[in-house]
Simulated scan of single mutants.
Amino acid sequence: MSVLPRIEAFASDLTRIRQDFHAHPELGFEETRTAGIVAGLLRDYGVDEVHEGIGGTGVVGLIRGQGGGNRRVGLRADMDALPITETSGVAYASTNPGRMHACGHDGHTTMLLGAARYLAETRGFDGTVVLIFQPAEEGLGGARRMIADGLFERFPCDEIYGMHNDPNGKPGVVTVTPGPAMAGASFFDITVKGTGSHAAMPHQSQDPIHIGTALVQQLQGIASRNCPPTKPLVVSVTTFNAGSAYNVVPDSATITGTIRYFHQDVIEMAEGRMKALCAGMAQAHGIEIEVKLRNVFDVLLNDPDLSQAYIEAAGEIVGAGATLTSDQMTGSEDFADMLQIVPGAYCRVGHAGMVPLHNPGFVLDDAILPVGASVYARMIERRLPVA
């Protein structure tokens, strides 16, 4: 492991910053405290331009290097937390009830701040670094909001890079999957509009619980019986809500969940089958079933050549632990929306700990902070070399 010495020298500052973010998590588009701290630190570091309020609570910083190069490379981190009650027991645990950095975005933000500090001090590159601190990655469309707010018109990039922590118990392992790397995702909301009754006389109802549970079983068959085994598809029902009393058959039930995919024909098939199953169930029971589907994430596509460049830069920091991999992930990431416009790549950085992401007991290993910051910084120095 060869963390850049200058970054290693201020690693304790990164830990302090990250733990402060962790203690004060904010949900998507509510990251006013986080964004304010980010903007203030960028100014303290000597970043040339700092722009706030991009796409709501997003922040963009520009650092100009040596020479007159006009190439621009973007680095992106996400800032939002999740609606989870923390159980980690760490001394710096969330002070905001029901909110937690259970996905490590506090670490992602801090790693990019570390790279920004180093790059603003050293300026060992020729061109411009575009630092993108994005709000609302967790399914709320923060990337799309920044893009709609003119992100790449105002701050054009020739290439762009992102990273995510990976709690796999393997510190110093950095992986990049060239090509389709993470799944696209749609969310669905289904409302079963039945007829309520007294629970002692269910024959007078059109029971939405009975109908809805049967529908859930049919939805689970889309992946196993309608999709070719060679094309990944995940259909997950994640909530089922109905009723409020022991002696009442309710008049409606709501079902929500997500579809994950890598191929356009697969998502079109899955959404079509979902609509058909709901329509068939509604006709069979003489009721109405409403289906709402919305695309939330694109498939994340890593540029193959830039994936290779990214892993070579990471290799200078972590050594043999930097590898290209063919393993796709059915998790989703809205950095994919930026990669639809600007070529780039997204890596995963391993760290100690085996509690998974989005778990209330998740703990980010602070030793990852100078590693991620160094990988970002070295990528800039390699992609924007000084002549």
Rank of each mutant, 00 (worst) to 15 (best):
A242D: 08
P343W: 09
D166N: 15
A373V: 04
P180F: 06
E316A: 14
L233Q: 01
D78W: 13
L27V: 03
I287W: 06
G107Y: 00
G194P: 05
F10I: 06
L364D: 03
E137V: 07
S94K: 04
T87C: 13
M163F: 10
T122H: 14
Q66W: 07
L151I: 06
V249W: 05
H198I: 03
G179I: 12
F133E: 00
G67F: 09
T175I: 12
S374D: 07
R72A: 05
K275T: 14
T95W: 03
F125R: 03
A320P: 15
L364G: 02
L339S: 02
P208G: 04
G221W: 13
V349F: 02
D20M: 05
D166W: 15
H24P: 01
M329I: 13
S244A: 15
G61M: 05
E137P: 08
S374Q: 08
C347N: 11
A91Y: 10
I311A: 01
T258H: 08
V249K: 03
S332H: 10
M111V: 02
R378W: 09
G107R: 01
V129P: 01
R144P: 06
R16Y: 10
Y246G: 12
R378S: 06
L62W: 04
P232S: 06
T122D: 13
G104I: 01
V235D: 00
T258Q: 13
G172D: 04
V291T: 12
I37M: 13
L112A: 02
P370A: 06
L357V: 15
M379K: 15
G372S: 03
R71V: 07
L293R: 11
A148C: 10
E121M: 15
C347D: 04
D207L: 06
V90R: 06
T110L: 01
I317E: 03
A9I: 07
P180M: 08
N302L: 03
S252K: 15
D334E: 10
Q206H: 14
V363M: 08
L42T: 09
I190K: 04
S307F: 07
V50S: 00
I287N: 05
N302V: 01
